[in-house]
C-alpha cells in the first residue's frame, strides 16, 4: 500500500502511455493515430514532472536567494538547512525537468501539425484516411508499375 502511494503517479503515467500507444498501433484511422501519438508524447511530460516533484515545494521563481540580503541571511543559518530549504526557508521545485518538458510539449505540437498535414494530403491522394483502404489502393499503384500485358 505504501508502495502504491509513493509510486501512484508512475502507475497512472504508465497507464496513460499504454493508452496512447494502444491508439497508435490499433487504430486504422490516421487522425486517430495522431491523437494517440499526442497522448503518448504528453505522458512522457507527466513522467518527468512526477520524477521532479519535491514535497512541499513551490514554483522555482526565487526572489532573493543569493542576493545581498539572501547572503546575509544564509550566513546566519545552518548550511545543511540552507542546502535543503534555501535561504528563505522555501523549498523550490526542481526546474530542470520543467525545461525539458517545455521542449517536449513544443516538439509534440510540431509533430502533430506535420503529421496531420500529411494525413490531409493522404486523404486528397487516396480519398480515405483509413490505413487498410490506403494499403489496398497502394497495392493497385504498385501493380500499375507492372507492364501492360
Amino acid at each position: 500500500m505504501s508502495w502504491l502511494a509513493s509510486h501512484f503517479n508512475y502507475v497512472i503515467v504508465v497507464a496513460l502511455m499504454m493508452a496512447g500507444l494502444f491508439i497508435v498501433f490499433s487504430s486504422g484511422n490516421l487522425i486517430k493515430r495522431m491523437i494517440g501519438l499526442a497522448l503518448f508524447q504528453s505522458s512522457t511530460g507527466l513522467f518527468y514532472i512526477s520524477l521532479s516533484k519535491v514535497s512541499g515545494a513551490t514554483a522555482a521563481i526565487t526572489l532573493d536567494a543569493g542576493s545581498v540580503d539572501g547572503k546575509a541571511l544564509a550566513s546566519q543559518l545552518d548550511p545543511a538547512y540552507v542546502q535543503q530549504f534555501g535561504v528563505d526557508g522555501v523549498v523550490y521545485a526542481n526546474p530542470l525537468p520543467h525545461v525539458l518538458i517545455l521542449t517536449a510539449i513544443v516538439v509534440g505540437v510540431a509533430t502533430l501539425a506535420v503529421g496531420l498535414a500529411i494525413a490531409v494530403r493522404v486523404r486528397e491522394a487516396y480519398g480515405t484516411v483509413e490505413a487498410d483502404e490506403i494499403e489496398a489502393l497502394s497495392r493497385v499503384t504498385a501493380e500499375q508499375a507492372e507492364p501492360a500485358r
Partner: peptide, 25 residues
C-alpha cells in the same frame, strides 16, 4: 506539481493550438 511555466505552455499549446489543428484536419 509546481510547474507553472509548463502548465502555461500545456494550456496554450495542448488545449489551444493542438485542438485547432486537429479540428482543421
Amino acid at each position: 506539481m509546481d510547474a507553472a511555466d509548463v502548465a502555461f505552455t500545456e494550456a496554450v499549446v495542448g488545449a489551444g493550438i493542438s485542438t485547432i489543428v486537429l479540428l482543421g484536419a
